[in-house]
Amino acid sequence: MKGFRLDRLPGLAVLSAPLVWAVLFLFIPYLIIFTYSFWLKKYPTFIPAFQFGNYAQIFADPQYYQVLLRTGKIALMVTGLSLLLAYPFAYFLVFKVKSSRVRSLLYMAVIAPLWVSYLLRAYIWKTILGSEGVLNSFLVWTGILSAPTDLLLYNQFSMVVTLTYIFIPFMVMPIFTALEKIPRNLVEAAGDLGVPPWGTLAKVIWPLSLPGVIAGATFTFCLTFGDFIAPMLVGGPDGVMIANVITSQYGAALNWPLGSALAVVLLIIVLVIIELSDRLQRKDRIGLG
């Protein structure tokens, strides 16, 4: 018979600390939100119930899927733009910069803003894109525009720009890592077999960096999908995203049940995306053995 061994206790303790943490700060809050999502809104606040009215409302009232669609669209644009900028940058760092000192310096330059407050970084874009902002002043000064344009700020464009700027490190990091992991002799082998550099990029480097691309895209998409600060700071009247709607249900509308139901929907969407990305990555990683 296997007796209970006292010396196993410390090990159990080490394991249980994160477990307790996860239960306290993840599962219980999720459970509470999940519970609330079946409650009923009733003046002045809301009452316990078990009913699907909140979910029904989300699917019946066009305002919710309108916002969900818009959020998805903006998240996609941010992901696409980040990828468009991050990939060439990471490629340049890994394959073109010879000095490892310069490389880590440039890498840090992209990552460092993560240590600057989100609000501050978003705020910077207000001063750049505003009607009397830096960019408008420049465009008018150079004569490209005769009068400042309103098109730069308080719309979806400014949200995409700001969110891209804020979340692009999460795209650069996994792509950089993936590119760095590609054995250099594979690139040489492709060249040796008569494939010019852009062909090598398309046939060897890109497919081998896909796990990094997928990870980066998942990060930026999910982070954008749940963002509510950029719409507040640089978004215009057409900039409300799903997290803002949730915030207002918890706040102005004092409708926690509906807010919770929306949060559950948001959570499900994000989980589905993470699961899909995980499967994709696993499929791609087989190759690297």
Binding site: Q63, Q66, A252
Partner: peptide, 8 residues
């Protein structure tokens, strides 16, 4: 009011 803000 939320519907107004959600509208495109």
């Amino acid at each position: 009011w939320n519907a107004v803000k959600a509208a495109n």
